[in-house]
Computed example of a mutant assay.
Amino acid sequence: MATIRKLRGRWQAQVRRRGMKPRCKSFDSKLEAEKWARELEAQVDRFGAAPDTKVLENTTLGELLERYQREVSPTKRGSVQEIQRIDVLRRHELAYRTMIGLSQQDIASFRDERLRSVAPSTAVRELAILSHVIEVAIRDWGLPLSRNVVKLVRRPVIRNERSRRLTGDEEQRLLDACAGGKIPFFKTLIILAIETGMRRGEILGLQWCDISHNRRVISLKMTKNGSGREVPLSPRAFDALTEWKTRADPDQPRVFPMAPGSLEQAWYRLLTRAEVTELRFHDLRHEGVSRLFERGLNVIEVSSISGHKELRMLKRYTHLSADDLVGRLG
């Protein structure tokens, strides 16, 4: 057991264990002394000896974030977004905490502060990065930490399920409004999104060589879940792509040469022209997946088209029309 005593105006913690040299350290408060002693005892239990805590006292969370950003992030598919998030984390005051002093309460306070300014999903992603940074530091970089404090903190609950479907003549209004824009392929892009349920990134990354006109199939080499898949094209989607190809630049390999940011801006301008409200571009994926179910496809068939690996996730995108279901019931 550790000994905590007040000595010459400061609190001294001393840890004695059989087989190791006694360790002691002075602190301004009793709470800090007790925390240091607990951490050291936990490390002795884990490693069988008292590790050199000086490295923890001299290493800040920001330094670990910087190394992770430099060595680990570039190897990931979503490296650009992760590097941007780490830049935000490195500017936060939490980054200046040393690893010897980083506590569960620090992480919980960071979470609560972030939730006042960002969405729960953003806070969850930031906590996931912090957790993985510490995990890599422990497992790969040999940082003598007894535990990952981020894992001890409750994650915010994400409630971003949407049931928005196209209603009435909204689809036709959107397609008609495309004629008033400056993007010649926007109508084809929207038809493809509705007919296939493909993700925005998959659509924008599509190249002409990915489309098999003989098979009427799109081959996606790499998707969000880390694997490729083949997406069958309905006659409507195939005809729209074929028509656009006759007008497209033959020297442009991409089907829709457009950046994600430009798509978002064009989408909101289109909603204004079409007088459609509260509709996100991602809602077209909801619409497309739901229509696949309404056409009679089963869960396995739909998941092979949409790319969902978990039924739980697939159900979030599935909002079937009650009128269509009544018709199928007879």
Rank of each mutant, 00 (worst) to 15 (best):
Arg173Asp: 11
Gln84Gly: 12
Arg16His: 05
Arg67Glu: 15
Thr60Phe: 10
Gly19Ala: 06
Leu241Trp: 01
Asp87Cys: 04
Thr242Tyr: 08
Ala137Tyr: 12
Arg16Glu: 10
His132Gln: 14
Val72Asp: 05
Ser146Asp: 14
Gly228Lys: 06
Arg200Glu: 14
Gly288Tyr: 06
Lys224Thr: 03
Arg254His: 15
Ala13Lys: 04
Pro184Ala: 15
Ser103Val: 03
Asp251Asn: 11
Thr53Met: 11
Gln81Tyr: 13
Met198Ala: 12
Thr60Ala: 08
Asp283Val: 11
Arg77Ile: 11
Phe27Lys: 03
Leu102Trp: 05
Asn214Pro: 00
Ser121Phe: 01
Ser26Ile: 00
Asp106Ala: 03
His308Glu: 09
Glu202Gln: 05
Gly142Cys: 06
Thr98Phe: 09
Ile190Ala: 08
Arg38Ala: 11
Ile83Lys: 12
Pro232Met: 02
Ile83Cys: 11
Asn160Glu: 13
Gly228Tyr: 07
Ser219Ala: 07
Glu32Ala: 15
Glu287Ser: 08
Thr53His: 08
Val299Gly: 00
Glu171Arg: 15
Lys6Glu: 15
Arg77Gly: 11
His213Val: 05
Pro74Thr: 09
Glu294Tyr: 11
Met99Trp: 04
Asp323Val: 14
Leu166Lys: 07
Gly48Ala: 08
Ala193Lys: 03
Ser131Leu: 05
Val55Asp: 01
Ala119Cys: 00
Phe110Lys: 02
Arg229Phe: 05
Gly9His: 07
Ala13Arg: 02
Asp28Pro: 05
Val55Trp: 01
Arg116Phe: 00
Tyr317Ile: 09
Arg216Met: 06
Phe185Ile: 07
Thr196Gln: 02
Arg215Met: 06
Gly261His: 10
Arg164Phe: 04
Pro260Ala: 03
Ser304Ala: 14
Lys245Leu: 13
Arg70Tyr: 05
Pro22Gln: 02
Val299Phe: 02
Arg159Tyr: 08
Asn225His: 08
Asp249Lys: 04
